[in-house]
Amino acid sequence: MDIYLLDWANLLLRWLHVITVIAWIGASFYFVWLDNHLTKPQAEDLKAKGVDGELWAVHGGGFYNPQKYMVAPANLPQDLHWFYWESYWTWMSGFALFIVLYLCNAGQMLIDPRVFAWGAAWQAVAAALVFLVMGTVVYEAACHTLGRTADGGVGNDGRVLAAVAVFVVAASWLACHLFAGRAAFLIVGATLATMMTGNVAHWIIPGQKKVIAQMRAGQKPDPVYGQRGKQRSVHNTWFGLPVLIAMLSNHYGMLYQHAQNWIVLCVLMAAGVAVRVFFVKRHKGVNSWGAVALALALLAGLIVWMAPRPQASGAVAPVTLDQVQAVAGQRCLACHAGELAQKGVRLDNAEALVAHKAQIYQQVIVQRAMPLNNATGMTDEERALVGRWAQQ
């Protein structure tokens, strides 16, 4: 695809993806908050209608009174609003972006020969897709074996989430040993996101439709559908922040280029879970400061552990701009020369190198994100030389 059109596809798909993520995660957070703030109705007419919880709220100059029925109202209205397209479009736009950026450009974005030498690009593409499928397979197996009671009801969520945590750690390790670091982070996040959308598409929405069909047929709704839908919705609550940090962190080379990048990813996702624990408990009126302390401790430990170590100083000759231009000519100009330079960053002349000195230092030395997946084979000695020049 022409680089100009590819940039437009990247921008528009990313924009769509961010919009739908905001809508989906926002709705998910709101309903968890709502569930935790509902109070038992006091009015007899609400009790008679089967209302199990209600809330009074004010927003935007108006008053709202949402009410929740334990299974369903006695008289089901014809006009019902469904919350599922936010989830579906989030996954579809994300997968489309994954295809455009990674699968169609596997040789550059998915494969890093320093990590694993794939025989062909299609093999890496197939393996990436297997991750998405296997995540759902493992998760569903955990829900069916660990998350249900003998009579088919909802069982112990703690065991299911523990099994998912073990899988995520294993998947992070494997992905970071098979794919380029940036791609590995994204694949792990997309695997969790696929579980989340699967919950909406195969359990939450179908369960609600079965309840509605039973009611319209004059039958008593089976509460198990609501219980299972609620279970999967709660799971999605815990998955949300780990997915977001996995997606955001793959934009920071210092994270995915680390020698133990799979540990970095796991710690970041664990911090996300701890943050979510705090907010869920806060909605119930409990300030879980231990969860906040845990999140901060995980992040602080990660920052200290990953901090660059000071290099031994010694008498070295100053680096000339000609030396840097020679390195840039070999390692950078494939993507950063001429009018079509990536991100508009041209490094094909002395003035441009000096103008972008700070960016070069950040991307090449600190984050080691460039060259992308070190496709042009920049050596550590060349990085050190560029680093000295940038700090002169």
Results as ranks from 00 to 15, higher is better:
residue 175 A to L: 06
residue 128 A to H: 03
residue 149 T to D: 04
residue 138 V to W: 15
residue 202 H to R: 10
residue 159 R to V: 01
residue 155 G to V: 07
residue 141 A to Y: 12
residue 126 A to P: 00
residue 186 L to E: 01
residue 218 G to S: 11
residue 165 A to C: 06
residue 208 Q to L: 05
residue 137 V to E: 10
residue 166 V to T: 08
residue 146 L to C: 00
residue 175 A to N: 05
residue 197 T to K: 14
residue 145 T to S: 13
residue 210 K to Y: 00
residue 219 Q to P: 11
residue 186 L to R: 07
residue 137 V to S: 11
residue 208 Q to R: 04
residue 171 A to G: 06
residue 222 D to I: 03
residue 190 A to Q: 07
residue 162 A to N: 04
residue 162 A to R: 10
residue 144 H to K: 13
residue 195 M to A: 13
residue 167 F to R: 11
residue 225 Y to W: 12
residue 213 A to T: 05
residue 190 A to G: 04
residue 141 A to L: 15
residue 213 A to C: 05
residue 147 G to M: 02
residue 221 P to I: 11
residue 143 C to N: 07
residue 146 L to H: 02
residue 180 A to V: 07
residue 156 N to D: 15
residue 133 V to G: 09
residue 131 F to M: 07
residue 201 A to N: 07
residue 149 T to G: 10
residue 173 W to I: 02
residue 133 V to A: 15
residue 161 L to E: 08
residue 136 T to E: 13
residue 185 F to A: 01
residue 167 F to A: 11
residue 136 T to S: 15
residue 180 A to K: 10
residue 144 H to L: 12
residue 206 P to A: 03
residue 204 I to W: 11
residue 216 R to Q: 13
residue 163 A to N: 01
residue 220 K to W: 04
residue 208 Q to S: 09
residue 197 T to N: 14
residue 182 R to P: 00
residue 177 H to E: 13
residue 148 R to N: 00
residue 136 T to N: 15
residue 210 K to L: 09
residue 191 T to N: 10
residue 128 A to Q: 04
residue 167 F to W: 15
residue 221 P to G: 08
residue 191 T to K: 06
residue 205 I to Q: 08
residue 149 T to M: 02
residue 183 A to P: 01
residue 139 Y to L: 07
residue 154 V to L: 09
residue 141 A to C: 09
residue 125 V to T: 02
residue 183 A to G: 04
residue 149 T to A: 03
residue 219 Q to R: 12
residue 130 V to Q: 06
residue 141 A to I: 13
residue 138 V to G: 02
residue 225 Y to V: 03
residue 148 R to W: 00
residue 142 A to T: 05
residue 147 G to Y: 09
residue 185 F to E: 01
residue 124 A to R: 02
residue 130 V to T: 09
residue 184 A to H: 07
residue 149 T to C: 03
residue 195 M to W: 06
residue 158 G to F: 10
residue 162 A to P: 00
residue 226 G to P: 00
residue 132 L to F: 09
residue 129 L to N: 03
residue 180 A to Q: 12
residue 220 K to V: 15
residue 159 R to E: 02
residue 164 V to P: 00
residue 150 A to K: 07
residue 144 H to S: 04
residue 168 V to Y: 09
residue 168 V to A: 15
residue 173 W to N: 02
residue 218 G to L: 08
residue 153 G to L: 08
residue 141 A to W: 15
residue 186 L to N: 02
residue 178 L to I: 03
residue 154 V to E: 13
residue 158 G to W: 14
residue 195 M to C: 15
residue 204 I to M: 14
residue 203 W to E: 09
residue 148 R to K: 08
residue 135 G to V: 05
residue 205 I to T: 10
residue 208 Q to G: 11
residue 127 A to G: 00
residue 206 P to F: 03
residue 197 T to F: 15
residue 212 I to F: 04
residue 217 A to G: 15
residue 192 L to V: 07
residue 214 Q to S: 06
residue 125 V to S: 01
residue 205 I to E: 08
